[in-house]
Write a protein that binds this DNA or RNA. Structure first.
Lengths: 148, 148
DNA sequence: CGAGTGTGTTACCATAATAGTAACACTATG
DNA sequence: CATAGTGTTACTATTATGGTAACACACTCG
């Protein structure tokens, strides 16, 4: 299966906040850019705030701002914040047959292999920050100006 | 979300076939080791055969064998065979607002970032073969002999 | 001080993917 | 020809997800 779109939307949200330059943005405004429901945005923001990436100001005139510089928020931070904290790969639903030499030991081996793969993925994500994404979005807009 | 257990079960199956040393194994036997239904195993085998990793002999006395040496089947081959061929990361369900500078360009940027992460994951998987898994299973059995 | 704006959270629904299960046509062996 | 075994389909239960509405709470501003 695929990794949920929460990651994509969360990066989108954080990029929007970076464009705000400290001005708090409302979930309704962000939902307009993402093209979804404000409550969906707030659910993501709840996870991001819990991870210390954003900070919300309640009440009228409130909204959300980045809790630290965009250059210090890696995509791995975002991934960890919004995706399930457990391992990326599922193992067997039912425990394999312990009487079979393969069944008895395969899961330990699989855990090592899939764990290494997940680390490789996260290391790649760690090499890019929200500031990088922001810069690429700007560059993209310059190369394909308002097309479509 | 998580990557389905199909990958784990498929690696398990291929490891079992390697233990068979050319003898065809039945889906019922393998289901006994995996601890699931034979039809589930056959569904996986169908995908593995389509990818050219296994070969089945029909009829009585039939079963499945590896189509090429275990040392030439990487975990990336297995991953590609049984997981959806599309991208690992989902993007937005609804297309983001094209009137927003961020919404208009974020998906192209996300595709690059998530694509690189997926490549990193697959490259890590490519470094391990079914023969490696087999060897690790044997080693594991030596270190933790028949415990539990 | 009170109206209004906006967050945080809950509950509920529709949809999709997954794994388990049974069934059956077909194929090859012996 | 009887049997063993594959390949495939259909159905079900479970789970994750995203969309939606609702509401209590918090804060600002007039």
């Amino acid at each position: 299966m695929t990794i949920s779109s929460r990651f994509a939307v969360a990066v989108h949200i954080l990029t929007l906040l970076e464009t705000g330059r400290g001005e708090p943005l409302t979930s309704e405004y962000m939902a307009g850019s993402v093209n979804t429901n404000p409550a969906v945005v707030r659910r993501l923001l709840s996870l991001l705030a819990r991870a210390g990436l954003t900070r919300a100001r309640m009440g009228a005139g409130g909204g959300t701002v980045l809790a630290r510089p965009a250059a210090e928020i890696t995509l791995r931070d975002v991934y960890r914040a919004v995706e399930c904290e457990g391992p990326l790969f599922s193992l067997h639903h039912e425990r394999p047959n312990p009487k079979c030499p393969v069944g008895r030991n395969i899961q330990a081996v699989l855990e090592r292999a899939t764990g290494a793969a997940q680390v490789a993925l996260e290391e790649q994500l760690r090499g890019r920050t929200v500031a990088d994404v922001m810069a690429e979005v700007v560059a993209e807009g310059r190369e394909a100006p308002a097309s479509r």
